[in-house]
Amino acid sequence: MFTLAQARHLMATLCPRIDELVLLRADLAELRADLAGGSQSPHGGLAEVKGLEARIYGILDELNEHDIQVKGVAPVLLDFPGELDGRPVLWCWLEGDGEIRWYHRLECGFSGRRRI
């Protein structure tokens, strides 16, 4: 369980890794598109696809090790288990958010997001 302050602090600490994830995701998308079109890619070939995937999975594993729930990678969507007014919630961060400013009840999911 994270307090809101703990979740925000951890998110700020992990921002460089999230930025790296976004860059790797874009490189992988371009590489796959180039290979599917039969053209050369500045990002490499099939071996580089596997390498990029491994690096992405490594970052996702790191997030999971912090007990962060990864709900999406395109866009990146992260949930941090917490509690608000005695009720279990998930502090919710979506790619593009400056900091954690949303939460939702466990049973409501993304569609139940509310501003903190």
Rank of each mutant, 00 (worst) to 15 (best):
K71A: 15
R17I: 06
G98M: 09
D67L: 13
L63V: 01
L63C: 03
H9S: 10
I18T: 12
A47G: 04
I18V: 15
K71T: 12
A74D: 15
F110G: 06
A5Q: 07
G45S: 09
T3P: 03
V76E: 02
I100E: 05
V22K: 11
L52K: 11
W91I: 03
A33I: 03
G82E: 00
D97I: 11
A47T: 06
C108G: 10
E30W: 09
E62F: 13
D61L: 03
L35C: 02
H9M: 08
D79L: 05
D34H: 06
R55C: 00
E83H: 07
L35K: 01
R115V: 06
P42C: 09
L106Q: 13
V73P: 03
E99T: 09
D27C: 04
E95S: 08
L35V: 02
I56F: 00
G45K: 06
K50E: 14
V49W: 01
H104K: 03
I56C: 00
T3S: 11
G44C: 10
L31D: 00
F80W: 05
D19K: 11
L77Q: 10
E95F: 06
E83M: 10
L23A: 15
L60R: 06
R113E: 01
H43Y: 14
R8W: 02
G72V: 04
E53I: 02
L35Q: 02
R114G: 01
F110P: 03
E53P: 01
S39E: 12
G45Q: 07
A12F: 05
E107K: 15
